[in-house]
Amino acid sequence: MTTFDVSCVGFAVLDILGRPVTAIPEGGRADFIEEIRMTVAGTAAATAMDCAILGLRTRMVSSVGNDDIGDFLISKMQSYGMDTAMMSRDPGNQTSSTILPVRPNGERPALHVRGSATTFTLVPEQYADALDAKIVHLGGTGLLWAFDGQPSVNFLKAAKAAGRTTTFDLIQANPETVEKVLPLLPYIDYFIPSIEEAEEMAGTSGPEATARWFRERGVRNAILTLGGDGVYADPEDGVPFTLPAHDIEVVDTTGCGDSFTAGIIIGLSKGWDLRRCARFASAVAAQVAMGLGSDGKLGSFEDTLHAMETLPLKELTDA
């Protein structure tokens, strides 16, 4: 019996977002925008936050600096009901942070300080507490310098030995990232990257070939987010399928992939099949995209179920 529904391990960052930004003012001049927010973010922390909002007992496992930003992140996590007992402090680095000037179409270039994410790691003596959940999510490979590579392999191997369901996402993937990811693949039950990152690593083109590439190397279920084109899934059981995205007015795409992962985790925790998990995850991501930051307009589990059934869908493309 586990204490938590999900344990999210890895990348945690503070996002400072402003919208809409069309240009950076010249010199020392000022411009005026509609909205600024600070949010919990990161491939592990944003997923954890959205899981907590949607009702799961959630543990967050990461590192922040011994600074005001770290204080804010931990306090904000706790306000969502997240367990932060395994949030460590790194006095030698500031908390990982990003400034995001969000464009009118929802795109967001980033200015990032790597900070405390680079020194986060776990030792075997900490595994039992970090694995005290039915589902274990590892997020942020690529920016977790101390935890990438063999430490992540050891951790996911321990997760599978303990009988946990594992989900995985990474960040800022490129062709070099694949060397860090390949040894992890046999221990990943649900691999949930964006199509762009997955293609970069696999050197393939198109969701079918890309998902197949990862499945052939050990991933049990490959789920590729396609942005406005929806999602493509190549499951361990059953045939591959594509689902369309919801037809919404996009405010900000920050955290959409992380929130999609949270939706998959919610569905898995309820024993749904993968198609229903992906439908729910698409509704989670749509609600996030309709607001600013990694939680956007995300509401309760019941609200999200309603959104899944009522938000309009785009026409399915050939993507």
Rank of each mutant, 00 (worst) to 15 (best):
P104M: 09
V61G: 11
L298H: 05
D234W: 03
A133I: 08
V251R: 03
G218N: 08
V61C: 12
D237A: 15
I264R: 03
P235T: 06
V178M: 09
I33D: 12
L14C: 14
F72C: 10
D229Q: 08
R215N: 15
P186Q: 10
A45N: 05
G65M: 06
D5C: 11
D234G: 05
I248A: 13
T166Y: 04
W272G: 02
N174K: 09
H246A: 03
P312N: 11
F155L: 06
A162K: 09
P244R: 00
F120V: 04
E176G: 05
L73T: 10
F72G: 14
P124D: 15
I135K: 09
A222Q: 03
I135G: 13
Q78R: 13
A30P: 01
D148Q: 06
A262D: 06
A198G: 02
N174F: 10
R215F: 14
M1A: 14
D229P: 02
F155W: 12
G42R: 01
G230W: 00
F241T: 05
N93G: 12
I99Q: 11
G139N: 05
A133L: 09
L14A: 15
R275A: 10
A133Y: 01
F214W: 04
G203Q: 08
G10V: 04
D83H: 02
T58N: 13
L224A: 07
